[in-house]
């Protein structure tokens, strides 16, 4: 398969996916939305294009014919910090977690919708940029929630609320990852410290506490979303579909 770069402007997406139907659907969707695309149908080819084309973002299927997608990710991460969004079939929670823990930025479950994909792409690209640039404004706002990171103040629908130190730490970690999924391991390691990485039940309970404080209806969260079996995602303003 020859690398064929479509369009002339916009971010360059490297698509590593062996199924032609999915590639066809993505080709159409991405070109309509002003992305440039380079396609690879094997892992070897994907790695080759990653070095040759220096893409802005990588869409990686986990089930490739010649190599495990996880292995592709590991090799890619040896030299590149390009954002990677993993595409996988359903029922592989552990695979998703492994991918995220090995440096993937996000994941999508097949079948997914075009809007969902585009939103994830935007988030990943923005985070990649913020790595190199100055941090965003110290105010984070989504739905009824507003956090002033400079003053350490949290407002829900205009009213200031009190968070415990740990709840605040949890919230700020999620804000740093806003729009992307954070695995339980990542959260525990970052918020509780490396020794508590297996204490997932603390996390669940604290997420519950945090939700009761920041969500209008904690059983139907709009801000702090559970990704079943994987972790949590804090919704980002403008990232909805």
């Amino acid at each position: 398969m020859t690398a064929k770069v479509t369009a002339t402007s916009g971010p360059l997406v490297l698509l590593i996916e062996d199924e032609p139907q999915v590639r066809r659907f993505l080709r159409a969707t991405l070109s309509v939305n002003n992305y440039r695309l380079v396609e690879a149908d094997t892992a070897q080819q994907g790695l080759m294009h990653a070095t040759g084309h220096n893409p802005d973002i990588v869409l990686l299927d986990l089930g490739l014919p010649d190599m495990d997608g996880l292995e592709v990710l590991k090799r890619l991460r040896e030299w590149s910090s390009v954002p990677v969004i993993v595409i996988s079939a359903r029922g592989q929670e552990q695979d998703k977690i492994n991918a995220l823990d090995h440096g993937a930025d996000d994941y999508l479950t097949k079948p997914f919708q075009a809007g969902e994909l585009l939103a994830r792409l935007r988030v990943a690209l923005r985070h990649a940029q913020s790595h190199t640039k100055e941090p965003d404004s110290p105010i984070f706002a989504v739905e009824g929630l507003k956090v002033d990171l400079a003053k350490r103040q949290v407002f829900v629908r205009g009213e200031e609320i009190h968070l415990s130190p740990l709840e605040y730490k949890l919230l700020t970690f999620l804000i740093r990852h806003a729009g992307r999924v954070a695995t339980q391991q990542q959260i525990l390691r970052e918020v509780w410290g490396p020794t508590q990485a297996d204490q997932t039940h603390y996390l669940r309970v604290y997420v519950g506490h945090l939700r009761r404080k920041i969500e209008a209806d904690s059983a139907r969260p709009q801000v702090l979303i559970t990704e079943p079996g994987v972790g949590y995602r804090l919704r980002e303003s403008g990232s909805g579909e």
């Binding site: 669940r204 309970v205 997420v207 519950g208 939700r211 059983a219 139907r220 979303i225 079943p228």
Partner: peptide, 18 residues
């Protein structure tokens, strides 16, 4: 089974989201 302590509202929440 990967049993872990979970708040039931979290289960309900993610189900309704789906």
């Amino acid at each position: 089974l990967r049993k872990e302590p979970v708040l039931i509202e979290e289960v309900v929440g993610s189900a309704l989201e789906a």
